[in-house]
Nucleic acid binder design. Structure first.
Lengths: 345, 345
DNA sequence: TGTCGATGCTAAATCGATTAAGCACGTACT
DNA sequence: AGTACGTGCTTAATCGATTTAGCATCGACA
């Protein structure tokens, strides 16, 4: 039942556990263990299928080779995809991943951080919830390797990897204008988090840059905490109260999904009756008829950079801060068509 | 930098580490530690923000309170959703989850199992890849708490939690027949895994039960290893070569997604020109226009049962085998309409 | 003959918790 | 007075690996 330990090998080889440890850690030469003894130990280890107990090793070395991944929702398309690549990339460096979803809830995030600390993870990849500042500050102060994703905390300089939210939203806004749309709404959340602010800013900037009007009433904020049904009915009401709209930009994937649901229920034809763009890509957007134009995040790059930045911290413990901002890509599909009269060239 | 240990508390409280351990483990009464001392220790622990080192605890007790979750693909809708609930449920029992994706690849699965063993996970939730029999057998032999999901290995009696694939596929087939479709194809994979076989069997059984014809040429198997583009083009070719088809049942979610893509490319109208049903539900299916009828798996129930079965093993180490088969639900949407002449009542 | 250095290995402490065994003291009971 | 028992705590071993310090042995060399 119990596993083979270094002691078992030592006994069978007629040497001390120390020697076994040296050899199995590749320090045979350095520690001047003879070739014969080394070979014997290596053979025995293979024969007995020795598996080093990572708990014992971790206890002694202080390194668990584990990283904690805190996402908003592992069942969400975007986070699930990032999680997958993160796991693959971490594996290349010999690290395993413990994950958890916060639902963007501060209490859950605190709980996760606490558990990860208990478990002595070596580093953290964190999607911060609102008001997580204190906890992040503490991790930073404790010099724990850490990198934020999807958003950052403006008050605290830390490593992060994100998409360029401003540019993505700007491109979306500009694209709609160039196609000739003039009455464009932005549907976003009430969340005060930086990524949402930047999407709002990017969109507004595009409107300004092209001297397009963006009246207050064309900005709809859905309470972040709203359950799905509530959100859908608010979006429906907004659409019905603004029949003159010709385009809508949804600032995040689930709002886009809700939006599609609303149009479906209301019998409004996307692409013909109204143009839409959503932040984030999704199978649903690609395969929907009509296809939904979107601002896609570079998921592979995000995940790879997350691990790269974290490994940098883990290995060199340098205090240089890495802030990676990756470009968003506007993926054009049929939900936005060229209007007859373009107002902007 | 270093954390507070039981020794630090002991020193400050002027007692031995043993006493501290007893109190913090709630064994104060049982071990006859006085109220005063208990209180003092509890206060100190709170004040110093003591976090027990799970490595040390695990090393001593042999329990890591960690479970390994091996899925086919964490980025896949179905697995991501299960993973989320698994994490939540495990958390209720104080367990954390280490995950990994196999891509249904034997070598990757072996690697994951090895790493999980190194890390001394207490139990396993496994989506077995083909030919993983030997490894599962070994885990079983070592009496490791384990439960399989999504599929099982017919040769090895183990715990598992699955949807009723036969019934799900049967219901789908029968439903199409009752709607009046007569030329129904099944698109599945070449995978020989049990869940796929049972879906095929269920579908065929429905055809037989209603004396409907199901010619060989209406069964299309897409090589499991096929990349997405290859799979899509094979499905396209199949559809074009069988213009007389009036309905198709896709045996798994990604095939259904590919199918939708094909129909979109080919300009065939789902619901009007052809009826389709897919196994597994998906946002995409719900929000597609027309909505895609599907055989939904009870994701919450699956995840809850997985944890329940595993906790049972972990706590009682009983050798009773738990095999849970949960009902699939046919979710009716617009991709299947009633034909004028029904051939079956 | 004595010292020095290299060679090849080992003893023992350590990481932080758990836990079996037991010690010292006080009280009660015969 | 002596025994027994209950109370309240401690000592020390243990889990399995890593790592520092150092012990023999041998040959070379003065």
């Amino acid at each position: 039942m119990k596993g083979i330990s270094i002691k078992d090998i030592a006994k069978q080889a007629g040497v001390s556990p120390t020697t076994v440890s040296f050899v199995l850690n590749g320090k045979g030469r350095e520690k001047r263990i003879s070739e014969q003894v080394s070979k014997k130990i290596l053979k025995l280890a293979a024969k007995l299928k020795y598996k080093p107990n990572q708990l014992a090793r971790g206890l002694r070395t202080g390194k668990t080779k584990t990283i904690g991944l805190i996402v908003e929702d592992i069942a969400n398309n975007f986070f699930a995809n990032v999680a997958k690549i993160v796991e693959e990339e971490a594996d290349k460096f010999g690290y395993k991943v413990l994950y958890g979803s916060t639902e963007d809830n501060l209490v859950k995030a605190r709980g996760l951080l606490e558990v990860l600390e208990y478990r002595q993870v070596d580093g953290y990849i964190i999607t911060p919830t609102p008001n997580l500042d204190k906890e992040i500050e503490m991790l930073k102060h404790a010099r724990k390797p850490m990198v934020l994703m999807d958003r950052y905390l403006p008050q605290i300089p830390t490593n992060y990897v994100m998409v360029n939210n401003f540019q993505g939203a700007y491109d979306a806004g500009e694209y709609l204008l160039k196609l000739g749309y003039t009455k464009i709404a932005l549907i976003t959340t009430t969340s005060e988090q930086i990524q949402m602010k930047e999407r709002l800013n990017g969109f507004t900037a595009a409107m300004k840059a092209h001297r397009a009007s963006f009246p207050r009433k064309f900005l709809k904020k859905i309470p972040f905490a709203a359950a799905k049904d509530e959100a859908v009915s608010q979006i429906k009401a907004f659409i019905e109260n603004n029949p003159d709209l010709d385009a809508i930009f949804f600032s995040t994937n689930y709002l886009g999904v809700y939006g599609i649901e609303c149009f479906k229920d209301l019998g409004i034809k996307i692409g013909d009756d109204i143009a839409i763009i959503s932040f984030d890509d999704h199978d649903l957007f690609r395969l929907h008829t009509p296809g939904i134009t979107c601002v896609a995040q570079p998921i592979h790059d995000i995940a790879r950079n997350l691990i790269q930045v974290l490994m940098n911290e883990l290995n060199h413990n340098n205090q240089q801060i890495n802030q990676v901002v990756l470009p968003a890509t506007l993926v054009k599909r049929e939900s936005c068509k060229k209007r007859k009269k373009a107002t902007v060239q």
